[in-house]
Design a protein around this nucleic acid. Sequence first.
DNA 1: GCCAACGTTGGC
DNA 2: GCCAACGTTGGC
Length: 138
Amino acid sequence: MAHWLLKSEPSSWSWDQQAAAGAKGTFWNGVRNHLAKKHLMAMRKGERAFFYHSNEERAIVGIVEITKEYYPDHTDETAKFGMVDVKAVKALKKPVTLAQIKGEPRLADMVLVNNSRLSVQPVTDVEWEIVLEMAGEA
DNA sequence: GCCAACGTTGGC
DNA sequence: GCCAACGTTGGC
């Protein structure tokens, strides 16, 4: 099963808002990048993703689950991009900061480190486990 | 607030 | 189809 990382600015969509949406979840829209779109399309129902706060916080704060696979984003007037639905699974016991990730040699190849601007990223199984470990969830 | 990295746009 | 200019993102 594949794992992912979804990035959001807390000022536009925060973990607290995601958690407040509960088991019903919400759509994850606003992706306007072709590589991010490709990743969105590869997501399958039931797969999990890290929820990352960019800018002020710069940390992975929680885990979400894909509840609906890729479908068209009707707010995109160019009709090129779509979105998935996600629901909050749990907040991490300890958020894992970008500084911690950069300080962990085993995570040197994470997309977050090498292509920080990509808003939807794949995470390998090994990376997933290491981050969980760092979050006190292992 | 600055700036590097990257994606997109548009002229040719 | 190439590439310079420009805008945006996001770390610092």
